[in-house]
Simulated assay, not measured.
Amino acid sequence: MSRMHNPAHPGEILKEDVLPGLGITVTEAAAQLGVSRVALSRVVNGRAGVSPELAIRLAQWLGGNAESWLQMQMQHDLWHAERKTTAKVRPAKRTEAA
């Protein structure tokens, strides 16, 4: 399975689709989710990732499942990590026991 080219940060989905669709602000969403406005703002603006706890809250709030939020975050993080990693790691070799 090939990975999506530059997957969206989950916060981008919240910022561009979810909040406008509900017609609410980050402050109102944070109150409904039971998190601080600052914490949600950091996610919405891509400065923090979706934690497992926030994923559960988002799933309860919007329906769906927490795994989908964590999957989005993982795909985003992995795509960016693959582009930043410069280390060349050789495959592991089994050593012969003496």
Rank of each mutant, 00 (worst) to 15 (best):
R83V: 05
P52K: 08
N6W: 03
P10L: 01
P91T: 12
G11L: 04
A92Q: 14
W61S: 02
N45W: 01
A30L: 07
A48I: 00
G46Y: 00
E12W: 12
Q75R: 09
P20A: 11
D77G: 03
W69M: 01
I13C: 06
I13N: 07
L33H: 08
A39T: 06
I24T: 04
L62M: 14
H9N: 07
R83S: 12
E12V: 09
R57D: 00
L70C: 07
G21H: 07
A81C: 09
P91C: 05
G64M: 12
S41V: 03
V26C: 04
S36N: 06
L78K: 01
P20F: 12
D77T: 10
I56G: 05
R90C: 09
G34T: 08
D77R: 06
K88N: 13
K93R: 15
T25E: 06
L78S: 06
V50P: 07
A97M: 09
A31K: 15
T85E: 13
V35P: 06
G46M: 00
R47G: 00
Q73K: 04
P91F: 02
K84I: 06
V89F: 14
S36H: 01
K88G: 13
I13T: 11
R47S: 11
G21R: 11
A29T: 08
A87Y: 02
G46S: 05
K84N: 14
Q60E: 15
G46W: 00
R42S: 12
N45A: 02
E16P: 01
L33Q: 03
L40Y: 02
G46T: 04
E28V: 14
G63A: 13
M4Y: 07
I24H: 04
A48Y: 03
R83C: 08
A8C: 02
Q32L: 08
R94T: 15
L62V: 05
M72W: 10
S36E: 08
E67F: 02
T85V: 11
L70G: 00
E12I: 04
V35A: 04
D17F: 04
I24M: 12
R3Y: 14
G34C: 08
L19G: 04
E53Q: 10
D17A: 12
H9K: 11
K93E: 15
A81W: 09
G23K: 02
T85S: 11
R47E: 15
D17Y: 07
Q32M: 10
E53I: 12
L40T: 07
R57M: 04
H5W: 12
R37N: 15
L19W: 08
N6F: 10
I24L: 04
L70P: 01
L19Q: 10
R47T: 10
G63Q: 06
P91A: 14
H80C: 11
V38Q: 14
G46C: 03
G49R: 07
A55D: 02
L54N: 05
G11H: 07
N6A: 12
H80N: 15
S68M: 08
G11Q: 10
P91W: 01
V43H: 02
Q32C: 04
K84P: 06
M4P: 08
S51E: 06
M74A: 13
D77E: 10
A39E: 10
S36W: 01
V89L: 15
R83W: 11
P20H: 12
W61V: 00
R47A: 14
N6E: 14
T95I: 13
E16C: 10
L78F: 03
P91I: 08
V43G: 03
S51Q: 09
R37E: 14
A59F: 02
S41T: 12
V18K: 05
